[in-house]
């Protein structure tokens, strides 16, 4: 199979690498770039743990062909902290609220929360739940996660 050059921006940095055409975005991020913060779960676009932001929009990277990202901007959990290394308000709020148990859903939760707060800085509880509905947490930590997003919205 012939590889194709994929050029895009990942966490603010331009990236250009050859990929096999049937690579999914999650495998490009984890395998080619070593950004293992993005997790794979169901691999069919149900669980949302593979969520990354594509031009600021949450998408399931496990069912998105990597070549769809050509010329576009991707944000992974590694790109959430500020350039000086200090954590984003959302990450701080998740830690303070104890909104993390096993941590597997956390990258997806935090990135969807980030996208929500960018568009809607003061979401209601229903809006938070709606925005997070595409990421499943199996430690049943939803209450604390919703709490963390609400806290993060107050820190802005």
């Amino acid at each position: 199979m012939k590889s194709v050059e994929l050029s895009c921006k990942v966490n603010g940095r331009p990236v250009s690498l050859p990929v096999e055409p049937d690579t999914m975005l999650v495998d490009f991020l984890r395998g080619h770039l070593g950004l293992t913060g993005t997790k794979t779960g169901c691999r069919e676009g149900e669980c949302g743990t593979c969520t990354v932001l594509l031009d600021g929009m949450p998408v399931n990277s496990c069912i998105l062909p990597a070549l769809k990202a050509a010329g576009r901007e991707i944000t992974t959990i590694e790109g959430l902290a500020r350039p000086d290394g200090s954590l984003d308000d959302i990450q701080e709020a998740f830690m303070d609220a104890g909104a993390i148990q096993c941590g597997y859903c956390s990258p997806g939760m935090m990135l969807t929360a980030k996208s929500l707060l960018e568009k809607n800085p003061n979401p209601s509880e229903d809006e938070i739940k709606h925005a997070l509905s595409g990421v499943l947490c199996r430690c049943t930590g939803y209450r604390k996660i919703v709490q963390a997003v609400r806290d993060a919205s107050c820190r802005k």
Binding site: G45, E46, G48, T51, L54, M57, P58, V59, N60, L64, T112, H130, A131, S133, G134
Partner: peptide, 9 residues
């Protein structure tokens, strides 16, 4: 349809 992530694409 699906989830917010699905509806975005």
């Amino acid at each position: 349809v699906g989830s917010p992530q699905i509806r975005n694409v």
